[in-house]
């Protein structure tokens, strides 16, 4: 975990308001799939770092690729960064997906909306990944070249312009893929549905959560999720997403 400057290697808008940013940063080699980094605004009036998940890890170039959507002024500022610019970052943060436990197994990687990027870093660390990704429309279906390079991919779009019409669970139910585990990241309704589906199919399921964060390191207790058991830090039923997560075994968290 380092608080340091990162060098922008490249940035491009890969879909409307969705940007791919590659940073050279000293801690890239320590990053794990499913972890995130905090990016700091150059404007001191925007105090809080923006947590962004890691999309791809390039240890050789000591680089991390981040894919993010413009959600406000902070991310809009980041979208203007050009090759050669510097930005202050903190990372790698959080726990990440258990890719080592399932390296040789068949893992269903479910990504919805802006939850798709971390699935790509997981796929890079697994022998048999199966993608299931959901988008609003074909126009907003980003990262497709990278994802379709893998042999097994299910795609859903809400308007039916690409793949199964509906959400990512509709695509999964339509083809009934077999898997030894599920890794998922996406909006809360999707994660609730994924959790229920995996429970019924009796497949171990790990989900990555997001929440408004302040410190990013587990000190402020701003970004908690309800848990089914007593959490290890505060001994209540509220785990810290930034530090104890963002990835949790689905049965550990109460998404109701």
């Amino acid at each position: 975990m380092k608080y340091t400057m990162a060098l922008v290697l490249d940035q491009a808008e890969i879909a409307p308001d969705i940007f791919s940013l590659t940073l050279r940063v000293s801690f890239a080699g320590q990053a794990r799939p499913g972890q995130f980094i905090s990016l700091y605004s150059g404007d001191g009036a925007r105090l809080l770092p923006r947590p962004i998940s890691i999309c791809q890890i390039d240890e050789g170039r000591s680089a991390l690729r981040l894919v993010y959507r413009i959600a406000g002024r902070g991310t809009r500022e980041f979208s203007a960064l050009k090759s050669g610019d510097e930005i202050r970052v903190l990372g790698p943060l959080g726990n990440g997906f258990p890719v080592d436990d399932y390296a040789d197994r068949r893992v269903l990687l479910i990504g919805g909306g802006i939850g798709v990027p971390p699935m790509l870093s997981c796929a890079d660390a697994l022998r048999e990944p199966v993608f299931a990704v959901g988008y609003r429309s074909r126009e907003l279906a980003y990262l497709l070249p990278e994802i379709t390079a893998y042999p097994e991919v299910l795609i859903a779009t809400e308007d039916g312009s690409l793949g199964t019409r509906g959400n990512v669970l509709d695509a999964i139910r339509a083809s009934g893929p077999k898997a030894d585990a599920v890794f998922a990241c996406g909006p809360a309704p999707m994660l609730r549905a994924v959790k229920a589906w995996a429970e019924e199919a009796e497949i171990p399921c790990f989900i990555s959560l997001e929440e408004r964060m302040a410190c990013g390191v587990g000190a402020c207790l701003g970004c908690v999720t309800k848990t089914t058991g007593v959490d290890g830090h505060s001994h209540v039923k509220n785990a810290r997403i930034c530090k104890d997560g963002p990835v949790f075994a689905a049965e550990e968290v109460d998404l109701s």
């Binding site: 105090l47 929440e211 408004r212 505060s234 209540v236």
Partner: peptide, 18 residues
Amino acid sequence: VPWPGNPTPRVCETPSGM
């Protein structure tokens, strides 16, 4: 005794503050 705190969202940024 342990206190669970408030529901989320618990934090948000404001101009030069939070």
